[in-house]
Amino acid sequence: MSFFTSLLNATPGAVAQGLVWGIMALGVYLTYRIMHIADLTVDGSIATGGAVCVMLIRAGINPIVAMLVTLAVGALAGLITALLHTKCGIPDILAGILTQLSLYSINLRIMGGKANQTVSVDKYNLLISQRYVRAMNLTNPIPLLLLLIVITIAAMYWFFGTEKGCSIRATGTNPNMARAQGINTKNDIIIGLMISNALVAFSGGLLAQYQGASDINMGRGAIVIGLAAVVIGEGVLKKISGNFALRLLGVVIGAIIYYLVLQITLQLGLNTNDLKLISAMIVAAFLAVPYWTKKNAKGGKNA
């Protein structure tokens, strides 16, 4: 019985965390599913978002303004990766790793050489905080997070229906075709990576406010959590709908499920040190199962 009560107690926190990471996962969905790039910049850019947000708020900047700056900083991180890839001919994965690695040093500098910086909800007027996650009023972070999710999904739904958005989708699925149709694929890759990392850094800013601190290691394994959200969301919503907005919603739901499962495993007495191992195993399993089923079902050719 105590298992369920404690799980119930942990649920609002898991939902809030899932929503924060959901925005990040939407950024990962953009690169991984739409552009077909495994962008590893995110492990760095989410921490950059956290660092920038916390330092700005500590400097007395309005948190809303600070969040807008995280968007810009994230876009800049994405731009670096994109330029390394498109202008310097570095493979996308390696370009992301290089940016991620350099961001570690940059993040330390942003945080004044410290490995973490706190931003207390007592001293600053934060947008969201873990403290009020069970509060029954507007200080609760969940309504605002839901609003942000709705705005992000609506914006992505709109953008990828525009001429520019369609060209980015074409670049992602078939760059040869895109070029033959007059699309500057390099430009599209730059735009896509910038938008993706802007979302990721924004999510990092929210995360830092939510937990009241930014940490140099807060992005470690972020890409895996993002991928987990994407693949879990797809696994859950597979048969329901092909609608793009619903698929994006599925990604957010995937992030929430991920954190709920995590809570359950923790409640079952699992060691927090094993979390990364478990995360990796969840993602590997969700990626492997469709591959195996497809392999077994393979009969006719696609012609």
Binding site: F159, G161, T162, E163, K164, G165, C166, S167, R169, A170, A178, Q181, G182, I183
Partner: peptide, 20 residues
């Protein structure tokens, strides 16, 4: 229809207008 719309915009600037 999206493939055709992409081709119909060949040689034009891709804007933020709806894609089709």
């Amino acid at each position: 229809e999206e493939n055709l719309a992409l081709a119909a915009r060949r040689g034009q600037r891709r804007t933020l207008k709806w894609g089709i």
